[in-house]
Design a protein around this nucleic acid. Structure first.
Lengths: 217, 217
DNA sequence: GTAGAAATTATCGTATACAAAAATAAGATG
DNA sequence: CATCTTATTTTTGTATACGATAATTTCTAC
């Protein structure tokens, strides 16, 4: 149901929330948004519906629609769930991965390694997504894969920031190798454990970063 | 963003999908639905957006909107994820539950027991929901709680059917007691394990039921 | 009779207009 | 001066209308 204009508004507002231009509690006025994006209220309303649906906004019955930026607590909670889901994907992948999928996983990880050698954090970001995507597919549960992708997407903008933290990329790669080994040897528990850690470390690093930024201000 | 008419249409279609009046692949024509619910296309479109968003329908660009009833495979996948989420809730609850929350959990379970004594499966259904709700709240992660509730809701209509399977209610209650004990003693691993089983058994029973129904036809 | 092209039809996305409901502001009365 | 009532304004929800695009059907040519 992705109409062109509605999608533009949705992504535009989403972007502005992520970059902090639209702060928590800011009113999402239909008329203003319509004017700002040069569309009518109809696609704006569709966009707001989707924003509310994906938890980025709240609707108060006759008061309007407001930005609902995730609090630090929300972020911590989402990372907690993300680590569980990633762990589950890895655990199932260890049991279900095919030879071809394993080869693709290794190739994706090699891509991550190359990105680090080139010291290209943007490239690493994308190769890292590829790596995890391989695991999602190999877990053999497309519902789980979708849920995990969806949550990853919500944490994405913050994560991109996070990966630039000093020394994280090589450590992350090391964890990748451990995950690949565990999956290859069919050690589901190990794959689960390392993957959970892999995400939780990112969550904690993210938390550090937030505190750091707050101190900076 | 819950407009009166749009919500009515959404719930109406949802209901008809659950009851099987609208079968998989049935076309959700905007004009027909508008006529059927005696509203204009605008609220119908909003309802369809939400249906697509919650996975009950698919939108094919210029072909229309179609009912997407979950396949058996989808159901198995959802149960697999549900058991993980329930396990996670129980695990966290074992670590984080307060005295008052524990008391409420025990009370809810007592309600389940009463329902069984009264041999009232509808009552049991509701008391069972209360029981699990206590755990969701006690897990201390409201994002997780919402995700789990949401998935529970999607499996709900099938689950109501499932609980009527012979001998399931007493067994289910037995599992409840085990979960309560594990949570009370702070045994997170045990709470996790039993809760996973608790859901997976329901998933398997559901599978049995489906096969049985197919054979019946 | 078949294949390709053109026309028609259906449906989707967006705009605009209107009505109802509620919040706020203003005025009157005690 | 305060409070209650009323009026105005803002905003939301719904209806309808219009334009564009794709699918289907029909017509023509080979």
């Amino acid at each position: 149901m992705s109409s062109r204009a509605a999608t533009r508004v949705f992504q535009g507002v989403e972007e502005q929330i992520a970059t902090g231009q639209l702060k928590d509690g800011a009113k999402l006025d239909e008329a203003s948004l319509a004017e700002r994006f040069e569309v009518s209220r109809t696609p704006v309303r569709e966009a707001l519906l989707q924003l509310v649906g994906s938890g980025l906004a709240t609707q108060i019955p006759k008061r309007g629609c407001f930005v609902k930026a995730p609090s630090l607590r929300d972020m911590v909670e989402m990372f907690e769930v993300m680590s569980e889901l990633e762990g589950m994907c890895a655990r199932l992948a260890a049991r279900r991965i095919s030879d071809q999928q394993l080869a693709e996983l290794k190739a994706a990880n090699a891509g991550c390694e190359d990105a680090i050698k080139a010291n290209d954090s943007d490239l690493y970001y994308h190769k890292n997504v590829d790596f995890h995507e391989c695991i999602y597919i190999a877990c053999g549960n497309s519902f789980l894969a979708n849920e995990t992708r969806s949550l990853r997407r919500r944490l994405q903008s913050f994560r991109r920031l996070q990966l630039r933290v000093r020394g994280r990329m090589p450590q992350s790669l090391g964890e990748h190798f451990e995950i690949v080994n565990a999956i290859e040897s069919g050690d589901a528990d190990q794959a689960d454990r390392i993957s959970r850690q892999h995400v939780m470390i990112q969550g904690e690093r993210f938390h550090d970063l937030l505190v750091h930024m707050e101190q900076g201000v």
